[in-house]
Design a binder for these strands. Structure first.
Length: 322
DNA sequence: ATGGTTTTTACTGCGTC
DNA sequence: GACGCGGTAAAAACCAT
């Protein structure tokens, strides 16, 4: 029923807009009047049928973010949630009306089918607490993974980790969100496509501290073996964010490998090393990017980049002498 | 909690366009 | 004069103990 009221409302606003700026509503082809077809999201000419505007809904983000802190503030992912439903409205919903997406009535056969689906959906939704728990967590993992551009296999791994945590009763006292986020963080690192804690917490509803705490706990309790992230795994992402060539990427990898051999990298943040590697490589290949640009995409201070990239170049020299 | 290490913040000076 | 870069000192964050 809300459907119809909303439809009516938008129709009305559309009409008022139309009368307000009529100069714009003339067909460029034949001069005929234009009418808005709100159902199809098009504006068409009454006379010749020319479609003037299509897909007027902007699918892009609501805001632009210019630096890391803004990105943190403004990123908002997924549908708004309600606490009114046990699953916060994140699960599948099947409408009660026997109408299809265009508002046409369904055949009796289809109606029966929908009725069965409704029944089953309801059963699954309210099965038992663990099931619900899992469902929400998996939905959450999926949401965050796609927001971070993580591939399917990472989501799989994250799901597995979460299931294990659930089986071993690690959940009590911890939030579903937190454990789900930690699972994803762990999975991303295991898969060699790590995301930094900052990036993760940007799309999670949980604070960074809690993610880190829960992550440590989960890793310890499940005995997951996760080696520190390899700086090289950040390189491709940074390089493409900065529109750098493959050459730079190759160079950066090389620098990082040398550094690794020399043991320069222990104790240093992998992200910082990667950022420095990319910066140094951009210098060596005359495809200059500024330190601040790199620090921007890597979420690392310029100072750290400076310190690291000196070390990288030193390590490089030592290798040359051998 | 503590101490050692790393990263960040803030500021300053230098050279270049 | 704004910008990119380098360096430094002090604060903050992180980590193992």
């Amino acid at each position: 029923m809300t459907d119809t009221t909303i439809r009516r409302f938008t129709d009305e606003t559309e009409h008022t807009e139309e009368t307000e700026d009529e100069s714009e509503h003339v067909c460029p082809e034949c001069g005929g009047d234009l009418v808005a077809d709100s159902e199809r999201g098009e504006t068409v000419c009454e006379e010749c049928g020319l479609v003037v505007e299509e897909d007027e809904i902007d699918p892009g983000p609501e805001w632009r973010a210019f630096d890391a802190s803004e990105k943190d503030e403004k990123s908002r992912v997924g549908a708004p949630t309600t606490n009114m439903m046990h699953d916060k409205g994140l699960s599948t919903n099947i409408g009660w009306q026997d109408k299809d997406a265009y508002g046409n009535s369904l055949s009796s056969r289809q109606r029966e089918k929908m009725q069965r689906l409704r029944t089953w959906n309801e059963r699954f939704r309210t099965r038992d607490s663990k099931e619900r728990n899992l469902k929400q967590a998996l939905g959450e993992i999926d949401r965050m993974a796609s927001a971070l551009g993580l591939p399917e296999n990472v989501r799989e791994t994250a799901s597995v980790i979460y299931r294990r945590a659930l089986d071993e009763d690690l959940l009590p006292g911890r939030s579903i969100e937190g454990v789900a986020t930690s699972s994803l963080y762990a999975a991303a690192r295991q898969a060699g496509t790590p995301r930094s804690l900052d990036e993760i917490s940007a799309v999670s509803r949980v604070e960074k501290d809690e993610i880190a705490r829960t992550y440590r706990y989960v890793v310890r309790e499940l005995g997951l073996e996760i080696q520190p992230a390899d700086p090289e795994s950040y390189v491709p992402r940074f390089a493409s964010d900065l529109d750098l060539s493959d050459e730079v990427e190759r160079r950066a990898r090389q620098l990082l490998q040398n550094a690794k051999q020399q043991g320069v990298h222990s104790g240093k943040s992998p992200v910082g090393l990667a950022a420095a590697g990319v910066y140094a490589a951009s210098l060596l290949t005359n495809e200059k990017v500024t330190q601040s640009e790199v620090s921007e995409v890597a979420n690392i201070s310029e100072v750290t980049i400076r310190n690291r990239y000196h070390e990288l170049l030193e390590a490089e020299e030592e290798v040359q002498q051998l």
